[in-house]
Computed example of a mutant assay.
Amino acid sequence: MLSTMTSIASAASLPFAPLAVERFSSAPNRLLFASADVDETRSMVGRVMKPHQLNRTTGSSERLDARMYHASLGDVCLSRLRYGASVDIEPGPLESFFLVQMPLTGYAQIDCGGQHVHSNQSVASVLSPDDETRMHWSADADQLMIRITRSQVERSLASYLGHPLKQPLRFELGLHWQDNAPWRCLMSYLLDCTTHHADLSQNKLLVSQIEQLVTLILLTSHRHNHSETAPARCGTVLPRHVRRAQDFMQTHAHEPLSVEQLADVAGVSLRSLYSGFKDFLGISPMQYLRDLRMERARSELLGSETSNVAAVALRWGFAHLGRFSSEYKQRYGESPSQTLRRR
């Protein structure tokens, strides 16, 4: 992470360069598709984002000339998309991811969760997963986009705050990204990485650092409904044994785990493990694991083909369906079955 942060810092005084976007787009294997067909375009974009409604704007005369360039970096995806014609897009709630859209040319009118923004070269849009979304793109709209999984962002925020989120994360819709130095420099860094390293996705360590970096900069450089919430213990760094236990739970959340096993992995006594989690995260190790499994259950309900809530709950260790549904609704503001119906 230090080398990544150094690269960002070295670019801090540089303006965002459109040339970097062109280099990204011309790099080998970045063109995902090019099409003049509405149905094909809808299908291809839906594979990267989610199924949605896409229609040429009534009365528009432009011919569709859609192109999408794409790079996947674990829980983060970088894309460039244009339609070449005025279009109306209705994805509904994004559900499983956050999406930052930055117009390079043209504009987009965005209605999202009761907020509205006229997005242009100065103002990006930050779409939150639970918000009903409708968009209109001008014919000359050409947008750079960052897609980040919901689980990645909310997990990072909960870890920073030291406790589970009491309400789903929701960002302000408009982001003045050209005036936001950390975000502008992040984009330059990502474009540079994906241009010069075609096989970047194979480097798991670097991908993990990029996931954390994108998430951190979004959370700290743009306002959201938890911005004023103070962390459980400000200015502290998690002890190594707490981080070891966290990492092990992230990897083995689907397996039976005991607190004794976690203490052994962390290399400390049970007492030290409990005090470390309580002092720095405000919860016990097993509550952390339960929260993590709840996140995984929600991701599966949102993103898989399953239609059986009970099977998902049981798979993630929730044997009492009524208690699972109650805790789920308290945390996410809807029942598991309602989540299924929103897909």
Rank of each mutant, 00 (worst) to 15 (best):
T133R: 04
L14W: 13
G322E: 08
D140Y: 05
G113D: 11
S304L: 08
V214R: 00
M286H: 12
A313R: 02
E154V: 05
A85I: 09
L273D: 08
G267A: 01
H224R: 07
P182N: 00
L54D: 00
T229R: 11
V242D: 05
V237H: 09
P239T: 03
M187R: 01
G84F: 01
N120F: 08
D130C: 12
Y160L: 11
R342F: 02
A319H: 13
C185Q: 12
S159Q: 13
V309N: 03
Q101F: 07
Q109Y: 13
S138L: 04
L144P: 03
A245P: 08
M1I: 10
L54H: 00
H136R: 13
G276A: 04
I8G: 04
N55I: 15
S272N: 06
L216F: 13
F98S: 05
D140M: 05
Y160K: 11
R243H: 14
V126H: 09
A263T: 06
N120V: 01
R30Y: 02
M187W: 01
Q212F: 08
M286G: 10
M1P: 10
R343H: 05
T149L: 12
V48G: 03
E305Y: 09
R331A: 14
T57I: 07
S326D: 14
R296D: 15
F33W: 02
R134H: 11
M294P: 03
V123G: 06
I110Q: 08
H118G: 12
S7K: 09
Q330I: 03
F318Q: 04
L301F: 03
F280N: 15
M249R: 02
K204W: 07
C77A: 14
A71W: 04
T306V: 03
G303H: 03
E334G: 09
E300G: 09
G162S: 03
R155N: 12
S156W: 09
H224K: 12
H52D: 07
H252A: 06
E327W: 02
H224M: 10
A181S: 13
R296E: 14
V87Q: 00
L2E: 11
A266P: 12
R298T: 00
